[in-house]
Every structure is written in structure tokens, then in C-alpha cells.
Simulated scan of single mutants.
Amino acid sequence: MKIEQTSIVEYEEVDTDFRMKLPALFQRLQRAALNHSDSVGLDTQTMVAAGAVWILNRIRVKIQRMPGYREPLTVRTWHKGSAGFRAGRDFFVLCGDEQVAAAASQWLYYDIGRKRIAKIPERVSAPYTDERDEALEPGAIDFAVDKTFEPEETLALTTREGDYDPNGHVNNTVYLDYLDTLIKRSGIAGGSIGEVGIQYLKEIDRHVQAIQGGLVKDNDVIHFRFFQQETVFAAGFVRTKDAL
């Protein structure tokens, strides 16, 4: 089963060029995934009451262009099946008939009581049904990240109360807000973002009030990570449109 959501790009979602911000795009993807779960009776509240949640482990997004202010935007998403404790989900983002972005993601099933990832029960995976279409090339989600590079640019970041979601940790989409700030203030990208891959390694809970963001450019790839001393919370890569 595939689901679609269509709405216009709102004022608060755009930057000074009246183009959708990077974190706003990721928020749209997250919202579509949540609404798909809601539609099959597996909304977050129901899952938490049953003792489990979905955790986004990694996501890769390729962007042809960012939608503009007031432009109609459709997010199409589908569940690609599950194996063990992992599940796949893909996305297309369209403006009318034009595809402007595509994404692949991997999710983990987390047992709240045992505080660890667990095998996905059939009663959880079955309601979504499986769609085998690929938004990106096969294997695109299996990208490598560099967690130990020496940053060329760093930026101190402070967590805010609004960063936390009902699970009590910084929401996955907020990392893209951190990344957007890190890239723009460093000036290291030098162009529009064409691709982002991020792996979430450790949650940022309420005990963490300040972190560091670091970047390094390696030929056409910009590596980034968010960390506090030796702890790395997330790491990934960015490519500009010129590098694709």
C-alpha cells in the first residue's frame, strides 16, 4: 500500500530565497511515514502503549530541486518490507507531475521495556503490506559514514526544548536543522544541496544540553558529524548539486 499527502509549501517552511528549507523537507517525509502508520492502526501512541516504537536508523535523500513557496507538494511513501529488526521505507516528493526528490530509509523496531532493538512481529509488519518499488538505486541505503574524521569546521550547538519529541529525545528532523545551520555558517558547501545521507547513532536525550557539529570536505563529499567529546550522535555526508 502506498499513501500520498498533498499540501502547499507554507511560509514558515521557506528560506530567504522562498525555497523549502532542508529540515522542512525532512519533516514532510517524517509526517508521511507517521500518517501511514496511523492509517494502519499503528500510530505512535498505540505502539508506545504496546511497549515499542519505530526508530529511524538512517535515511538518504536525493534532491533535484527544492519546492518553492505556495507550490503544491505531494509526498508518496511506502513500506518495503521488514527482516529481523529492520524495516525499509521509500519516498517520492513531487510538485505536480515533476519529481523533485526521492529518499530511502531504514527503521528499527525498539522494545521500550527491554531497552533494545527487537525482531519485528508479524502483527506489526503485516498491516503495512510490502511494496518492492525502489525510490533510489538498489543498495543506496547501505552507505558508509565517517565517524572519526578531524573536522575542518566546527560549530557549538545548544539543544532547545522544542527539539524534543514525545519519545524524550531530539527529533530526527532537528538534526537537519543543525546541519543546515552548520553548512550555511561554515560556507563550506558552496552550492545547493543535492544529496544527504545521515545515520543516527545515539539519541540526544534531555541530559545533553550542548553538542558540537563538525564538517570536513573530501573532494566532492562533505562529511559531517554531531558529537560531544567521544560520543557521536549522528554522522553522514552531503553532496552539492554541482558534485552529482
Rank of each mutant, 00 (worst) to 15 (best):
H79Q: 13
T181A: 02
A87G: 14
A243S: 12
V196G: 02
V208Q: 14
T159D: 05
R206F: 04
Q209F: 11
V174Y: 03
F224K: 09
D97V: 12
G41S: 08
D90K: 01
T148D: 11
A101E: 06
N172D: 15
R160A: 01
R206Y: 02
A144E: 07
F91V: 01
D177G: 03
E203N: 15
Y178H: 08
A103F: 01
T129D: 05
I59D: 00
W107L: 01
L22M: 06
W78N: 10
T46I: 10
G213Q: 09
Q106E: 02
S192T: 13
P166M: 03
F227H: 13
R239W: 09
I117H: 02
D97F: 07
S125I: 09
D17P: 05
V216D: 06
L29Y: 02
L73W: 05
R239S: 05
P166R: 00
A83Y: 03
L215M: 10
P166C: 04
V9Q: 04
H207G: 10
K21P: 11
P151K: 13
D111Q: 09
E122M: 13
Q99N: 10
T231Y: 11
P67C: 12
R116E: 15
Y109R: 08
K62E: 01
Y69M: 15
G113D: 11
K115L: 09
V170A: 06
L182E: 01
E150T: 14
Q199Y: 02
I198T: 04
V208F: 03
I183Q: 02
